[in-house]
Amino acid sequence: MTDFLYPFIDAQEDDVDELLVDLSASARGKAAESAALQKSSLRELEPSIVACAIAMAERFTAGGRLYTFGNGGSSTDAATLASLFSHPAVGRPLPAWSLAADQAVVTALGNDVGFDLIFSRQVIAHSKPMDIAVAMSTSGNSDDLVTALLEAKRRGLLTIGFAGYDGGRMAELVEAAQLDHCFTIRSQSIHRIQESQARVGHRLWALTQEQMVKTRAIRPTTSGGSR
């Protein structure tokens, strides 16, 4: 390791090549961390991903819809997960939406009832008991996500959280049987957590697709929306 990672030790700064060499090594090091975390996360979570995919396939087969949500970068990862389900490059499209996507709805709720309710109010408005709610977070603690997951659980939805660090409140909710599944990525880095969450989300999608093929799932064409 050179002085470039400790910039103030070396006042002489004219060697661009040395910086580029250090940046490249840093990129490979971080990618290696990401690869290791993805591998260990998949290994640890595989049994619960399988169980969750079976439950999701049942819901989709019953006519259920998937709603995803998160804050900041995680809101975009939640949107990517929703479009993976709804517009997969291969496989069967399934109905899925991101609840952060509509700025009129999000700002109306944020302004009128408060930011903590931006997703739970949408769960109340949109969801049926056979639906699925997925919240993506790195801390597992965000109030708006936890509130929406609890609301969804009360309404009979299948509830799934993605978290990082030690799982935060989402991990506690699973312990208390107030959340059906929580996929916790055991890392302290928000970036590495999000990269592994994408990998786990992709695995969850792939297994859901497999399960629907295996059971030759036939989805109802009429509304199954009795409460």
Binding site: V21, A27, A31, A35, Q38, K39, R203
Partner: peptide, 23 residues
């Protein structure tokens, strides 16, 4: 099984890609 699903470090970041990324 998951070994095939999880990428290796070299899959994620080749020498060439890390050079491009730095630039």
């Amino acid at each position: 099984m998951t070994a095939q699903i999880a990428p290796t470090a070299a899959d994620l970041m080749s020498e060439e890609l890390s050079t491009d990324l730095s630039a």
